[in-house]
Amino acid sequence: MTSSMPGFAPDSEPHSVSSIMRQVLYALVPGIALYVWFFGFGIVINCLLATSVALVSEGIMLRLRKRPVTPFLTDGSAVVTAVLLALAMPPYAPWWVTSIAAIFAIVIAKHLYGGLGYNPFNPAMAGYALVLISFPAEMTTWPLPHMLSEMRPGFIDSAMIIFADQPTGALKLDALTGATPLAHVKSELGNMRMVSEAVGAPIFGMLGGKGWEWLSLGYLLGGVWLLYKKIIKWQIPVSMLAGLFIMAVVFYLSDPEIYLSPVFHLFSGATMLGAFFIATDPVTAATTPLGRIIFGAGIGILTYVIRAWAAYPDGLAFAVLLMNAAAPTIDHYTQPRILGEGRQ
């Protein structure tokens, strides 16, 4: 990892931290643009809010730890953490929830472990998991895509919801929000209904939920571009999607009335965002080629297990954090054999 070297010079090489981070942000543009199109401006405000809070926290922590502030602050890693965090959060999450998540991500999950290059857990997912467990009500208020709520809150309305807890004038928050497809299926199954009945609801589209499926395609597009630019390696996204897909196929074939279809799993929730942007974080993922495959497959399988049998509708954040914890062990057991040394 370049970033863990003391005194590295940003931009001195093609794959410096800041250039990687910049390209990751570019790759998120299609997903964010589609997010705005389908769900309004809340996500933009959340991204800006999380980024400002993250940069201030990063600056304060660098100063406290007596590290050079400017090179680390401008390396973009805090911005990527903040944007990924904002993309994982509900776009109308109150400002203080987003802020707590961003502060926790930067201060506790990143700097208390030694800063960029030393943190064992993905900071964005740690911040997200903290607020998801802590503030369940605020963290489950998801927007409906504009074709279902039949209104598109503008920038001002979105800001009012985030900062003052309610939109202006005639808009009602209840009319803008609803269950996500994964949460809807989970609650319908809990009410003893079948999957075939649950997916008849108007929130479902061709591949996943209306709107959400396009977001997933946007992230997929960005992810493929990152692969093409050789910013990320293929092992983690492919094995993660394969792990999730194979689990989904096996259980879908065993009982399609209880288990969702594999395609739905791939294009719902945080699957695509997680596979290409979150699980591939070079600091917290396994690093050996075989290790990456095990790491990704573990995330895919755990995500499926949490979605299918646990209390939370989506489980990607927890799956990533659990595999982060396992990454050093995976690396230890998958070290490539040194040439000339015998097999143990």
Partner: peptide
């Protein structure tokens, strides 16, 4: 203030 559930755990 709704309280941080995680801190209670």
């Amino acid at each position: 203030y709704p309280g941080m559930h995680l801190v209670r755990l």
